[in-house]
Amino acid sequence: MLLRDRLSLVQVFRITWKLDIFIVLVCTLAYLVDTYWLKEHISIPASITAVLGTALAFFIGFNNNQAYDRWWEARKIWGALVNDSRSWARNLLSFCDNNAAGETKHIARRMIFRHIGFLYALKASLRQTNDRYYEGYLGGTEDDAVRNSQNIPNAILNLQAADLQLLREQQAIDGFLFRELNTMLVNHCDNMGKSERIRNTVFPPSYLFFTRIFIWFYVILNTLMLAEAIGFWSVIFGWAIGFVFHVTHMNGISLMNPFEQNPMSIPLDSISRTVEINLLEMLGHQPLPSPIEPTGGQYLL
């Protein structure tokens, strides 16, 4: 996730320089084709490019809106996970009856540690990495129980449900608190499922493919039309038009998969570490891990 609300010219150039060169080459080729061959056969009216540009702008806008909806929904899901995580730990620490039979305090702390493991396991699953950091928050037998599971975060939630039932059987929590904690457990599962839905649902590739094709067609057509009126300057104006449309489309593509590891993605590392610090502090654990530092002072992963 970007931390600044503006980009420098150097950053823009680093992102788009390959595209800039390719646009200039295509526009130059279109200018040469029109100058030495096409203008003797046909004259392209300006009304065609005007209508096509309007239609293309709507098409790109639709794509970008859908991409942003995916990104914003992912951000809301993980924001809810942060809030529910703090409430989960607070309820377990504050409202469990430590005088009840059994090791109530030990079970509550184990469930909080396990929840941190759940967040890191979910992060690794969404990013499809082999990060096993979550294993540090699971007991030895628990690690063996979830390791061979097809869905490790869901297997961790199953362990949480078993311990929640154990607290109820030991009468460490009453029926109202049991129902409240179980609702939070259901919320964890819901948010996990919503995240997996976004991660596993591919944005229709036809939208991306045809949008790119239409943009290049529009850039070439504009260059051919302008070449008849302003000559070689049509290459510069063609580049400017192509730059605007292509970069606008690139902005949408960068938001399309919010759980990937890029500057525009949801900062899962930072969010998970924030929750980890908060919960360990509530447990009185020392030392606390350090927050995730921004990459180059520009964005968080």
Rank of each mutant, 00 (worst) to 15 (best):
L3V: 11
R6N: 12
L7W: 06
L7V: 14
V10M: 08
K18C: 03
I21K: 08
V24F: 10
A30E: 00
L32W: 05
L38R: 03
L38T: 08
K39H: 12
E40T: 13
S43G: 06
S47Y: 11
I48S: 10
T54H: 06
A57V: 14
I60E: 04
I60R: 07
I60H: 09
F62I: 15
F62G: 09
N64F: 12
Y68E: 07
A80D: 03
L81P: 02
L81T: 04
N83T: 14
W88V: 07
L93C: 04
M111N: 03
R114T: 09
R114M: 10
H115S: 03
F118M: 05
K123I: 04
K123H: 01
S125C: 09
L126I: 08
G136D: 09
G136R: 15
G140P: 00
E142D: 09
D143E: 11
R147A: 13
N148Y: 04
Q150E: 05
I152K: 06
A155Q: 02
L159P: 01
Q160D: 12
A161Q: 10
L166F: 05
L167D: 03
F178K: 02
R179V: 12
T183V: 09
L185A: 07
C189L: 10
D190Q: 14
G193N: 15
S195Q: 04
E196S: 10
F203W: 12
Y207E: 11
Y207W: 15
Y207T: 12
F209Q: 13
F210T: 14
R212E: 08
I220C: 12
I220Y: 03
T223Q: 08
L224D: 01
L226D: 00
G242S: 09
F243E: 06
T248K: 14
N251D: 08
N262W: 04
M264N: 15
I266W: 01
L268S: 02
R273S: 04
R273F: 04
T274A: 09
L279V: 08
G284R: 08
P291W: 10
G296W: 05
